[in-house]
């Protein structure tokens, strides 16, 4: 692959160097008291010292977690039909619908336009997904680009009953359930920068925004969230708030 210089997971350890991938929010999380572990090649914040406080945040107020380590791919196909076919092949028959996120093959499939989508998955699952997409792309008649966008977008998961109130302090995207139901997907301004929001569950939102503004967005979210009684949470605490799953939309007929 000629574009491996985009892929953080293409780094290899040698006898002198062990590259560990780090997010743009790592320093801010460290200042907030995060404890880190290396998982799947990434230095990730797993906890913030008080499991009780984190539990309160996700259950009663609001918590935010840096999930920038999630693998992301940008899929660009010159033909909408080919995009649909590639997605169906790589994602167990899933179909995409503008305005909605599709949960399939342990990934979020986010259609930006009829011929462009972002896929978000666990860091460990990224290489396999990339391979499946490239395999599916080989069958397409149109030009296909599968670009590693892991470091293009930083990501934050915002959870808790006050998650929407916290979000309202820095973004005008309408997160009311009637406007953004579970699995809804909205590009829009997040803290005055271009971003995207996925409603992963009733009180769980995935925010995507530019990697370079990670520290700024963390500061903004922390400022808003702390004022409402929330706190940062580690990856382990996120398990308390499930990702809402809807059935994969099957194609009407499969080839």
């Amino acid at each position: 692959m000629s574009l491996e210089f985009l892929a953080p997971d293409a780094a290899v350890a040698d006898d002198r160097h062990t590259p560990i991938a780090r997010t743009s929010m790592e320093r801010a999380a460290r200042s907030a008291g995060a404890r880190f572990e290396v998982r799947d090649g990434w230095n990730v914040a797993v906890a913030y010292g008080s499991p009780e406080r984190e539990r309160t945040a996700v259950r009663e107020t609001a918590g935010w977690a840096d999930v920038s380590h999630l693998g992301k791919l940008e899929l660009h196909v010159s033909n909408a039909d080919d995009l649909a076919a590639i997605v169906a092949q790589a994602a167990d028959g899933a179909t995409l619908e503008l305005g909605s996120a599709t949960r399939a093959a342990d990934a979020w499939w986010l259609p930006l336009t009829a011929d462009r989508a972002i896929v978000v998955t666990d860091a460990a699952a990224l290489p396999g997904l990339r391979d499946r997409l490239q395999e599916a792309a080989a069958n397409a008649s149109a030009t296909v680009s599968v670009i590693d966008a892991t470091c293009k977008y930083a990501a934050l998961t915002l959870v808790g009953p006050l998650a929407r109130e916290v979000f309202a302090r820095f973004s005008a995207v309408d997160l009311r359930p009637r406007s953004l139901p579970v699995q809804g997907f909205r590009p829009g301004s997040v803290a005055r920068t271009p971003g995207m929001v996925v409603r992963e569950g009733d009180d769980r939102f995935l925010l995507l925004f530019g990697w370079a503004v990670g520290a700024y967005v963390w500061e903004t979210v922390s400022d808003a969230g702390a004022h409402l009684g929330g706190s940062p949470v580690g990856l382990d605490a996120l398990d308390e708030v499930a990702i809402g799953i809807a059935p994969v939309r099957e194609e009407a007929s499969r080839a």
Binding site: R22, S24, R27, R169, F170, A191, R192, T193, G210, W211, A212, V213, G214, A215, Y216, E219, T220, D223, A224
Partner: peptide, 13 residues
């Protein structure tokens, strides 16, 4: 809030 959007490189720290 007086928080200015700022881009920082990954090496800023």
């Amino acid at each position: 809030r007086p928080i200015e959007p700022a881009k920082r490189s990954a090496i800023h720290g």
